[in-house]
Amino acid sequence: MMSHVACLPLPKRCEWLADLAVDALIEEANLSPKPGLVDRRGSGAHRDLDLPLMQASALSLWETFRSMAEAAHEHVDLDSTLRETLGALGRQGERTMLATTAGVNTHRGAIWALGLLVAAAACSPRLDPTRIAERAAHIARIPDRGVPPAAASHGQSVCARFGVDGAREQAQQGFPAVIEHGLPVLNASRAGGHAEHHARLDALLAIMTQLSDTCVLHRGGLHALRQTQAGARAVLDAGGSASFAGRRALQRLDDTLLALNASPGGAADLLAATLLLDGLQFMPADIRSE
């Protein structure tokens, strides 16, 4: 059984992690120009979403993320009790989100991904992104007996129909789209001297090239997924979003996704996860050492 180091309660760390999670969601929403997604330009392929709604949704989840972090601190083992507590908190967070958005699903997938990562980081003695992702995967693989019987989500239905992995499997595998693609490209783009928003766009595109995005599949099927992955690869192959050729390829991808009514929402959630893990390096020393 995987255990974390026994420690005193760390309310400052829990609050800081909640801040980091909310900031990651807001920064993902604000990032522009994202193909097919809500950003500062408009609603992308969505008719029921806009940037103020995404921002309000993110802010409404602060208490959820803090509670998840606190729950992880209070348990000696990463066990079924913690898993079920996190599941209950996540479902309450979904209710809070839906109340804020008048029933629009803005961040259900992000609650799952970022909630697990916040819990894993809450009392880990090591803040290495790969280590945190591994701990989150351990939690995600534990069955949650508290899940109420209900109809399958769009993502689960798509996974069954097309035989692909979804958000659940990404978490259970340790977020490979983030660890193997999003973070490395984010860091490589920065090292190449590109502006931060270009580095983040390139990280999003790297995730899109690999992810069987159930949001895209739900809206446009396999054809839309192939167009999404190939279009994202074309941007990176052209030099990334900071290059003239890359920006032209990015515009073509955006046009394609809008024509297909496809939105890579799963990749957007994993970009937020990328930003959260990246942000752990900036945890203040006084909180890190508590």
Rank of each mutant, 00 (worst) to 15 (best):
Q55N: 14
Q55I: 15
Q55P: 01
A58H: 07
A58N: 10
A58T: 06
A58P: 12
A58W: 09
L59C: 15
W62F: 15
E63T: 05
E63N: 02
E63W: 07
F65P: 04
R66L: 03
S67N: 09
M68L: 01
A69G: 07
E70F: 05
A71L: 00
A71W: 00
A72Y: 00
A72T: 04
A72V: 04
A72I: 04
H73S: 13
H75L: 09
V76K: 04
D77A: 08
D77Q: 07
D79N: 15
D79K: 12
S80M: 01
S80H: 01
T81M: 07
T81H: 10
T81L: 10
L82N: 06
L82S: 08
R83S: 05
R83I: 01
E84R: 05
E84H: 02
T85L: 07
T85K: 15
L86Q: 04
L86H: 04
L86I: 06
L86T: 04
L86S: 05
G87W: 09
A88Y: 03
A88G: 11
A88N: 12
A88E: 13
L89G: 09
L89N: 08
G90N: 11
R91I: 12
Q92V: 11
Q92N: 14
G93Y: 07
G93R: 07
E94Y: 11
R95S: 14
R95V: 11
M97Q: 15
L98W: 13
A99E: 15
A99L: 11
T100P: 01
T100C: 13
A102H: 15
G103C: 14
V104S: 02
V104T: 08
T106K: 03
T106N: 04
T106I: 00
T106Y: 00
H107T: 09
R108C: 06
G109R: 02
G109T: 02
I111C: 00
W112S: 00
W112L: 03
W112C: 01
A113H: 01
L114T: 10
L114A: 07
G115F: 00
L116C: 01
L117F: 00
V118E: 05
A119W: 02
A119L: 05
A119P: 04
A119S: 12
A122C: 10
A122D: 09
C123K: 12
S124Q: 10
S124F: 03
S124I: 07
R126Q: 14
D128K: 08
P129E: 14
P129K: 13
T130P: 04
T130A: 13
T130Q: 13
I132F: 12
A133I: 06
A133D: 14
A136T: 12
A137H: 07
A137R: 09
A137P: 02
A137Q: 10
H138Y: 10
H138L: 12
I139F: 04
I139A: 02
R141I: 04
R141M: 09
R141A: 11
I142S: 01
I142A: 01
R145H: 08
R145C: 06
G146M: 08
G146F: 00
P149S: 09
A150W: 00
A150V: 03
A150M: 08
A150E: 09
A150G: 05
A150K: 07
A151Y: 06
A152H: 03
A152K: 10
A152I: 00
A152W: 02
H154P: 10
